[in-house]
């Protein structure tokens, strides 16, 4: 094989593969409607639904009477690998039974230290905390990432069995 022959052969095969590649691009250009996969975020913010299991942030649901299901048992605090949860639950005397029991005062959650591993949710015996599906959590001040999950004035739902 002569060097000249090789030279031209490589030019032709180069052009051929170039056109083959362009054909793929051309296909997507022609079928842009069918093959579209991108989402127009943030324009679609109102309709965007994350999957139910998506782990965005740990929250504590409260019902309409400001009742939650957290007994202050500290299981989530122990399960958390990063120390993102702090439970302040002093023992107080129950006026009815006269026995001392833990009552949640503050469920402190440090979002900045959370790796969203889901272990706290799995460990909670009363399903008092769940993962929320929101994902826009940027704030201007780091201190805002520390949250108290039980709302002010809230109390334990009396139906919750410990």
């Amino acid at each position: 094989m002569s060097a000249i022959g090789n030279y031209f052969r490589s030019i032709f095969s180069g052009l051929k593969t170039l056109f083959q590649g362009m054909a793929v691009t051309g296909y997507y250009f022609r079928n842009a409607r069918k093959e579209i996969i991108t989402q127009q975020y943030p324009d679609n913010k109102d309709t965007l639904r994350m999957y139910d299991r998506f782990r965005g942030i740990v929250v504590m649901p409260h019902d309409e009477n400001n009742l939650h299901a957290c007994t202050g048992c500290s299981a989530c605090e122990i399960a958390c690998p990063n120390g993102s949860i702090e439970i302040i639950a002093p023992r107080v005397v129950d006026p009815e039974t006269g026995k001392k029991k833990k009552v949640i005062n503050q469920h402190i959650y440090h979002y900045s230290m959370c790796t969203l591993c889901n272990l706290c949710i799995l460990s909670c015996p009363t399903e008092a905390i769940v993962m929320d599906q929101t994902f826009e959590h940027a704030v201007y001040d780091r201190s805002l990432l520390t949250q108290i999950l039980n709302k002010p004035g809230s109390s334990l739902n009396p139906n919750v069995k410990e």
């Binding site: 994350m50 999957y51 299991r53 998506f54 782990r55 790796t115 969203l116 889901n118 993962m131």
Partner: peptide, 9 residues
Amino acid sequence: EETCGARLT
């Protein structure tokens, strides 16, 4: 994401 709840980790 649908099954495990996260995309990467």
